[in-house]
Write a protein that binds this DNA or RNA. Structure first.
Lengths: 194, 194
DNA sequence: CCCCAGATTTGACAAATGTCAATAAATTAC
DNA sequence: GTAATTTATTGACATTTGTCAAATCTGGGG
């Protein structure tokens, strides 16, 4: 894939919801910069204000918290062809509770908060696309809350298996465990028993 | 409060974000119907498609799920001066996993899905107000996910106490417990110990 | 104002999950 | 390819939380 293609997936993502001219698309994409990350690279640290929102071309970003004892909890995962960041920090421009890490070597696009908000004011249809995306992500978070307040460890794991098996194959089980809010030992036992 | 005033809070809510003319406000409000509910009244049952989104003038609505054994889990609470519904069902117009119940005698406004979407297309500024509200609620849900995957029962209760003491005073502890995803007995013991 | 259904508390016990430590397996970096 | 490092598994045990049952409390409706 040459440099001219790095915006192809972003254009497709936008085109799924609205139809815009090629010049408009080019203008939209010009706000995004391109970057390749190494495995394990940290893109944001806690207490920093998230400057960017990311579109993942390939690879995976992980938004996670760390407690005083160094224990990590994965709040969110961002895979190919989706947008994400440390959402509260980016949106409110306040210090982040979370880190962002590239769990795989990834190829990503990123946009500043200022440019992001600028597009909302100036780019026709972008506020709608973003709003619909927000609805989708909010619904996903509601489903996750439901599973967290109603299910035990095995049920949560089985649900993830059925809804997102790719995630389980792809990520180390340590991350699966702290995404589900259980210990790695418990997860390991679930896998062998069931 | 007479009938002419039932839209006062909704107008204030809208006015917090954008400035609109009185006629526009009146048009906006005309899409909302007014209703008083009894304590315990069910507004939506699981498997129904949520027809309405609600603005609560006073009182409190509760969005909850019920498992096969009849155990309830509170997904969401909607207090005065805020908007809410069984969000996934209302937004996607698909059968709801959740019930909506009025936990107190309440006074509410409600709007159909069709009118809600109509306003997004026709009412200047409404998509923005709604989008910003979505961001706020999505952030709240992220915070809740964080507390669910990182905290034990006592920590979750203490957090709720510090962030939302009114909620604890106002609602029966059975509901507090299933909002936190713990049993009422565990909650009762936390309260006496700490 | 009283009664009663529902809510809360408490006790005894069971089950689920976490913690710590040791070992085994896998993956990365060189 | 191999050593070094991380990751995953397993065992033993502690802790938390859930479950069921009974007793007590409470507040809303008549």
């Amino acid at each position: 894939m040459n440099d001219a293609d790095v915006y192809g997936q972003l254009k497709q993502y936008l085109g799924k919801h609205i139809t815009v001219s090629d010049e408009q698309l080019a203008l939209f994409c010009s706000k995004f910069k391109h970057k390749k990350t190494k495995r394990g690279e940290i893109l944001l640290r806690a207490d920093e204000i998230a400057p960017y929102s990311y579109f993942v071309n390939n690879g995976c970003l992980r938004v996670y918290m760390m407690d005083a004892e160094g224990r990590e909890s994965t709040r969110f995962l961002i895979f190919e062809n989706s947008v994400g960041t440390a959402f509260p920090s980016f949106t409110l421009q306040e210090p982040s509770m979370a880190y962002i890490q590239s769990v795989e070597p990834s190829e990503i696009l990123y946009i500043t908060h200022k440019d992001f908000n600028g597009l909302l004011d100036t780019f026709p249809g972008w506020e709608r696309v973003y709003r619909i995306d927000l609805e989708r992500e909010y619904i996903a978070s509601i489903r996750r809350i439901e599973s967290l307040i109603t299910m035990d460890a095995k049920q949560k794991y089985n649900l993830l298996m059925s809804k997102n098996p790719a995630l389980i194959q792809r990520l180390p089980s340590r991350i699966i465990a702290d995404y589900l809010g259980i210990s790695q030992e418990t997860l390991s036992r679930l896998k062998s028993k069931k």
